[in-house]
Lab assay of single mutants.
Amino acid sequence: TTVHIGNVTYHFDNPEEAVKWAKEMAEKLGLRIEIHGDTIRVE
């Protein structure tokens, strides 16, 4: 599972961890997340 924040990509072996981490980052940055299969974007 990959999480994209701007130009930076993070890789997670556990999809649930990826979603949890992306949600925390989105809250901190005042952004929202979009999930497309195994790709998560924070925008």
Results as ranks from 00 to 15, higher is better:
1 T>F: 12
1 T>R: 05
1 T>V: 14
1 T>Y: 13
1 T>I: 14
1 T>E: 01
2 T>D: 06
2 T>R: 09
2 T>G: 03
2 T>N: 08
2 T>Y: 11
2 T>H: 11
2 T>Q: 08
3 V>S: 00
3 V>Y: 01
3 V>A: 01
3 V>F: 02
4 H>M: 13
4 H>N: 06
4 H>F: 13
4 H>Y: 14
4 H>E: 09
4 H>G: 03
5 I>N: 02
5 I>L: 10
5 I>K: 02
5 I>M: 08
6 G>R: 07
6 G>N: 12
6 G>S: 06
6 G>E: 08
7 N>E: 09
7 N>S: 13
7 N>A: 12
8 V>R: 15
8 V>P: 00
9 T>N: 06
9 T>H: 08
9 T>K: 13
9 T>Q: 12
9 T>Y: 08
10 Y>E: 03
10 Y>A: 03
10 Y>G: 01
10 Y>Q: 04
10 Y>T: 04
10 Y>I: 10
10 Y>N: 03
10 Y>V: 09
11 H>P: 03
11 H>N: 06
11 H>L: 09
11 H>R: 11
11 H>W: 14
12 F>M: 02
12 F>I: 02
13 D>P: 09
14 N>Q: 07
14 N>C: 06
15 P>R: 15
15 P>E: 10
15 P>T: 12
16 E>R: 09
16 E>Y: 12
16 E>M: 11
16 E>K: 10
16 E>S: 10
16 E>H: 10
16 E>T: 10
17 E>C: 09
17 E>Y: 09
17 E>W: 07
17 E>N: 07
17 E>Q: 10
17 E>S: 08
17 E>I: 09
18 A>L: 03
19 V>C: 05
19 V>I: 15
20 K>G: 06
20 K>E: 08
20 K>W: 07
20 K>N: 09
20 K>M: 12
20 K>Y: 07
21 W>T: 01
21 W>V: 02
21 W>Q: 01
21 W>G: 00
22 A>I: 03
22 A>E: 00
22 A>P: 00
23 K>D: 04
23 K>Y: 12
23 K>H: 09
23 K>C: 11
23 K>R: 13
23 K>F: 10
23 K>I: 12
23 K>S: 11
24 E>K: 13
24 E>G: 08
24 E>M: 15
24 E>V: 11
24 E>S: 12
25 M>C: 06
25 M>Q: 10
25 M>P: 00
25 M>Y: 08
25 M>W: 06
25 M>G: 01
26 A>G: 05
26 A>F: 04
26 A>H: 02
26 A>D: 01
26 A>C: 06
27 E>G: 06
27 E>C: 09
28 K>E: 09
28 K>D: 06
28 K>V: 08
28 K>T: 08
29 L>W: 08
29 L>R: 05
29 L>N: 09
29 L>A: 07
29 L>F: 12
29 L>I: 05
29 L>K: 04
29 L>C: 06
29 L>H: 14
29 L>D: 05
30 G>T: 03
30 G>W: 04
30 G>Y: 04
30 G>N: 13
30 G>S: 05
30 G>E: 05
31 L>G: 15
31 L>A: 14
31 L>H: 09
31 L>T: 11
31 L>V: 10
32 R>T: 15
32 R>V: 15
32 R>M: 14
32 R>L: 13
32 R>C: 09
32 R>W: 10
33 I>K: 00
33 I>P: 03
33 I>Q: 02
34 E>C: 14
34 E>T: 15
34 E>N: 11
34 E>V: 15
34 E>D: 07
34 E>Y: 15
35 I>R: 04
35 I>L: 06
35 I>C: 07
35 I>S: 04
35 I>P: 03
36 H>G: 04
36 H>S: 11
36 H>W: 11
36 H>E: 13
37 G>H: 05
37 G>Q: 05
38 D>M: 08
38 D>L: 07
38 D>C: 06
39 T>E: 11
39 T>M: 09
39 T>W: 06
39 T>K: 06
40 I>K: 01
40 I>E: 01
40 I>Y: 01
40 I>F: 01
40 I>L: 03
40 I>N: 01
41 R>V: 14
41 R>I: 14
41 R>T: 13
41 R>S: 07
41 R>W: 15
41 R>D: 04
42 V>R: 01
42 V>E: 02
42 V>W: 02
42 V>H: 01
43 E>K: 09
43 E>F: 15
43 E>N: 10
43 E>R: 09
43 E>I: 15
43 E>Q: 13
43 E>H: 14
